[in-house]
Every structure is written in structure tokens, then in C-alpha cells.
Design a protein around this nucleic acid. Sequence first.
DNA 1: CGACATGTTGATGCGTCTCAAACGCAGTGG
DNA 2: CCACTGCGTTTGAGACGCATCAACATGTCG
Lengths: 248, 248
Amino acid sequence: MLARTHSSQAVMSNAILLSPNSKVPSLQDIFSNQMMDRFEAGSTLFWEGDPAASVFEVVAGVFRIVRVLSDGRRVITGFIYAGELLGASLRDRYLYSAEAVTRVTVRRFGRNRFQEEILRQPELREQLFSRLSDELAAAQDQMVLLSRKNAEERVCNFLLLMTRRVAQACPAMPVVELPMTRLDMADYLGLTIETVSRTMTKLASRGVIAPAGRHSVVIVKPVTLASLAGESYADPYAAPIERCSGAA
Amino acid sequence: MLARTHSSQAVMSNAILLSPNSKVPSLQDIFSNQMMDRFEAGSTLFWEGDPAASVFEVVAGVFRIVRVLSDGRRVITGFIYAGELLGASLRDRYLYSAEAVTRVTVRRFGRNRFQEEILRQPELREQLFSRLSDELAAAQDQMVLLSRKNAEERVCNFLLLMTRRVAQACPAMPVVELPMTRLDMADYLGLTIETVSRTMTKLASRGVIAPAGRHSVVIVKPVTLASLAGESYADPYAAPIERCSGAA
DNA sequence: CGACATGTTGATGCGTCTCAAACGCAGTGG
DNA sequence: CCACTGCGTTTGAGACGCATCAACATGTCG
């Protein structure tokens, strides 16, 4: 669950992540010679409690990070997109299951070799550390959301997060892909599918968003959406999506 | 918010933390020459959004990690006990406020010097990384709690956590100190003070716990408490408090 | 002793969950 | 090409858990 965030809940900077002009070694580089594995949507990469044998780089597709209570209640603690890492927290066992939301492609790296590589290269260490910090920041934001925000704020927050994440050149009215089902969204937001559905419908009827097919939404009023998300004091430091100039 | 956990939500191992037989340099060691600062209960060590100038080691007392939404809703994302670090995530600004729950003593270390020290000493890096991972695991457990657990499960979970944390030689009927107020507990558990109070009363009337003064509780039935906490699948790996043999 | 903070207990309301049914889209086979 | 089927989603009615508001008890400190 290595979601890179900007200040608090936010976007992954591809510039840093992929380091296109790589003089500096990047975390991705150590995966570049590894074999690609493909999985169908719905398949499980690893299970909560499994010995943590590998670290994965997500090359394409989206994963969900799942935890389940003994009576079946399900919690999704995050979504992992292409360019991010899975299982990099380097504990003996995975703390969660990783399930493919879409068809996915990953590169696998042995845990020990990954750890050695990290030990050897200071720049990689730096990046890994930075990602852990980002992930921790995201986790704290999520705690705030789950602790004190109502259904509408949660859904708006989620839509904003997804908008920033795909970061598609930020037009005034971005179209956001939502590859996951309503159930996934519900389990991520601590709600039920019905509540998520009702909230989305209400937002649409108010003209804040507009449905665009099963798995995407047009953000009609990004500013309204942001104010409805009930950001915390610290969040104004994060770049709002509507502020990004030029770069269409 | 560097809470060390055992497997998932759990205890800080003093053996690792304080490294009493220190051949290996410990994170604490780099603070050992620093001046001690003392603060009264209720005072704020640093504010959410402040430039992250320092890293702190808590020598004595307890802090709460606080985030506030723009309309005043308050969330506590963690409690920091003696032996743990504050502000070590090494971002430009603090992501949360740190407030003293009790009278506290801390050692301060300049952020840059701390970072240099971390860069220079592999063992410290290892420890810091391990703590970050533990903190992340704790954050995920908390997300599960806030997302899907009811009031009773939350309170029981909290009491268990506190029991493991103080780790007082685990008698059959441990006495747990709760230095924080009901409001703190409520803001940590995503509840109101009234609900926390009612839940505690109900647990007491059922003989699971017994009040022992304002700020401490006797855990009368640890096993019952654990089952009421609604642990997740992974948690059985964590040592339950009643299993610890000998060591009285 | 009074003033204030903290905690408990009670009555009521609201937001979300639960249960249930209908809808819509995608894929399939006739 | 279209009915058929299955799954995800939407929509509705009612129930329930926790929040809210309020009163009171207790502890603490001047």
C-alpha cells in the first residue's frame, strides 16, 4: 500500500516516481529485469497472514488492499495503482490481502534481494522511506475520514483523491475513472453500497458530478466537491485540483 | 506517532526499544546528550502545519496526536508513550499537533542533525524503518476499527491495546492506567464521550472490567475482553495478553 | 465553600444500516 | 436480432445504533 501523497491526501508525482531522466537509480529500476506476471481481475496476489516472500511493483492495473474481520466484515485500506509497490513494509507476514481490481501486471522481487538492494543503495532507501512516510500520511487522513466525516464528505473526499491520483492533465472538468465496484468504494469508505449509491445520486442531482458510464464520473464542479469533502486545517497546503495552470 | 506494535495492534518491546545491553547504537542514544524539556499537561509541543524543525524523544509522560477539521471536529490518531519518537516522519511540516496528556519530559533533536545521524548509522536507519512499519501497521488496525467496529468493540480494543502497551508483567487481572480523558478516548475511537462512558459502564456491570479510580481500570476478564474486541483474522498471530507465561 | 472541569445517566432524534425489490447493462445462446 | 440470465447498481421502507441535548453527579482546585 505505497500510495504517494502530496502533503496530505493527494497525488503521485510521476516525475519522481518514474524518474524518466534516470541518472539516479529508482526503486522501479531494480524491478526492470524481473519477469512480468499477469493476473485477471478478482484474483488474489497474496493473502493476509502469508509469509511475506516477495515485494511487487504494479506495472499496470489496480489492486485493492483488503482486511477481513473474523465474522466477514471487510475493510479496504487502500488502492494501489501502476507505479506503486506492494508488500514493501518488510515484515515477516503480509498484513493484508492484495486483490486485483482490474486485470493487472506486476513484477516480482524476492524479499531478501529487495532488502539487500535497499541496503546497498542510499537513493533507493531514500525513496522507500519517502513512500512509507507518504503512506503513513495517507493512513492518517483516512483515519480522520473514517472517524469524523459523514457519508457525503467521505464520497467527495474519495472522488477528489481519485481525481488527483489519475492526474490527467487536470482540465476544468476532469473525467475520473473508477475501476472498482461500489462495494469496494463502500468498504474503503466505511459505508454500505446503498449509502455510496445514494450519495453519488444526490451529488449528481445537484450537478456536482455527472455519471459517465459505469466506471467513470465527470467532476462538474471541482471546487464545490472540494468544499464538500470537508478538508482538514492542513490540507490547504495541498494543491487543489482546480488550481493547476496551463498544462492541458 | 511511532507506536511499536507486535504483529498488529500491540505492545512495545522494551528490550528492543531501550536496548539495555547496548553494543548496538540505539535511536535513543542519539538523544542522550540532549537537553530535557518539560511541559505541563495540556500544553502543545508542536502544531499541525508547523515547519518540522525538530524530532522529539518522549522520556516520560504521554502525548496525544491530534488533527482538527476546519469546523472543529477533532481526531486523535494515536497516543505516544515514553520511549517513542515524535515528528520522525521527516516531512517538511508536522502533519498533526502533539499535545501533552500528562506532564511530560522530552529530548529535542534538530531535524537536520537527526537526518544526518540516520544517514550515517545503518542500525539507526533499521530501527527507524522498523518503527515506521509498526506505526503503519497500527494505523491500518485503527482504520479497520474505525471503519467496521461498533462502540463496544472499539472500547474493548482500546482497553486491550492499553493493557498490552503498559505491559506490566501481565498478571491474570492487569490494572491499566488510562491517563487520557474520556474525550481523548472518544476522539481516538471515533465516538462521543457519552458513548464511551455508557460502554465502559456496561462492561463494568457485566463484570468484564472494574473501575479503579478515575484513570485506571482492572481488566477482570481479559479473555472476554479480547473476544469482544472483534479481532481480525491476522490477529491470532499476536500474543494474547493472557497467554504470557511465568514472568510475573 | 463555591466554581469549574470531567464524568455519568436519561430522553429523543438523526444518519446510516438492513432488508427487499426493481432496474440496467453485459454476455450468451437461441 | 432478441429473449434470457446474472451481476452490479439503484431506489424504497423501516429499524437500529450512536449522536445530540440536557440534567445531574463527582472530583479538583482556588
